[in-house]
């Protein structure tokens, strides 16, 4: 994959053969993979490909590191105790059952550690919740079991491009019960895309702050592309906001992440990030081919009237 990981964050590492070997834990901690899409044997989060996505990645690594250190200390003490204080070695039980000093210490130290983690996390959360200053707006609507994308505006100009995006035919044929088809044979551009490919990907430009407004039409779905670093629920009657700004061209795959009925596992998401020039060309093609302005709702007018009030309230708090 072109997106193949670079980034200042994260050691480039292919963990393909790694499972089962002894270094597994260490790899989980530092290695994982810098690939943007799921890899066989992947052990850690992806650092992602956007201006934001390293934040959850680093937070994950720091928190995991903290847990591993605490784990080594606590479990280490436990194993020492289990070895030293065994009856079979003639250990005689002591009588104490209380020690105020150590109790205060092991209450206070975790508090300090937690405060530092909370500080890091709050910082990241603030960045994520700032959806201002976007150059492009895409409306995402979840349906049982496909996604609809409306391009609302780009560089200040309103757009009328929209389409449905659903599981590609090859995956769909293969996934039928007892289809006899081989999931490993489902490929696109040499990549194994079983259940992670769609008929019409969402095409977006890189180096552009894109604001997503996310909602649903029937039940709750969740729009999740790991390489972007977040997921956001798509809820009927509610419009949620999120943003991304992709650094690297590539094809980024994700899936619906909220149980939405029988085909919940079969409504993938594909984001195709291209250069701004390529995007301008793609957009022009779409507009030429364009159907007359979408019969169905463009942009926020879509939401049922009574939901708009809620949405306004949510957005004023969320920025």
């Amino acid at each position: 994959m072109r997106a193949g990981g670079f980034g200042k964050h994260g050691i480039r590492f292919r963990a393909k053969q790694a499972f089962g070997v002894a270094g597994l834990m260490a790899l989980g901690l530092f290695g994982g993979t810098a690939q943007a899409n799921p890899q066989p044997g992947q052990l850690n989060l992806t650092p992602g490909v956007t201006t934001y996505s390293h934040i959850p990645y680093m937070l994950n690594n720091v928190a995991l590191g903290v847990c591993v250190v605490i784990g080594i200390l606590v479990f280490g003490a436990m194993f020492i105790a289990m070895f030293r204080f065994r009856k079979s070695r003639g250990a005689v039980p002591e009588k104490w059952s209380h020690n105020t000093t150590v109790e205060i210490i092991w209450t206070a130290i975790p508090v300090v550690i937690l405060i530092s983690l909370a500080w890091l996390a709050t910082d990241g959360l603030r960045k994520f919740s700032d959806t201002t200053g976007s150059q492009m707006t895409v409306k995402v609507t979840g349906y049982q079991w496909k996604w609809r994308y409306d391009y609302v505006d780009y560089l200040g100009k309103p757009l009328h491009v929209d389409f449905m995006s659903k599981l590609d035919d090859q995956s769909n044929a293969t996934r039928q019960l007892d289809s006899g088809l081989d999931p490993y044979a489902v490929k696109a551009d040499g990549e194994q895309t079983y259940l992670l490919n769609v008929d019409h990907p969402l095409v977006v430009p890189i180096h552009t702050k894109i604001r997503f407004v996310i909602t649903a039409d029937d039940v709750i779905h969740s729009w999740f592309v790991p390489a972007l670093g977040w997921k956001m629920d798509a809820i009927p009657g509610v419009i949620n906001a999120a943003w991304t700004n992709i650094n690297t061209p590539g094809i980024y795959r994700g899936q619906c992440a909220e149980l939405c009925g029988q085909d919940h596992g079969f409504m993938p998401i594909v984001v195709k990030a291209v250069s701004q020039d390529d995007f301008a060309k793609w957009l022009a093609d779409q507009q030429k081919a364009a159907t007359p302005p979408a019969p169905a709702p463009a942009s926020t007018a879509a939401a049922p009237a009574q939901a708009t009030a809620q949405v306004a309230a949510k957005q004023s708090t969320q920025g």
Binding site: G32, N37, P38, G41, L43, P183, Q192, Y194, F224, G265
Partner: peptide, 23 residues
């Protein structure tokens, strides 16, 4: 299952991409 989650496999799905096969 920690690794599957970190690699992005959603819960409550009956089938998955081949990248998730090993674990």
């Amino acid at each position: 299952q920690h690794f599957l989650g970190l690699a992005g496999m959603p819960r409550r799905i009956p089938d998955y991409n081949v990248a998730f096969a090993n674990f």
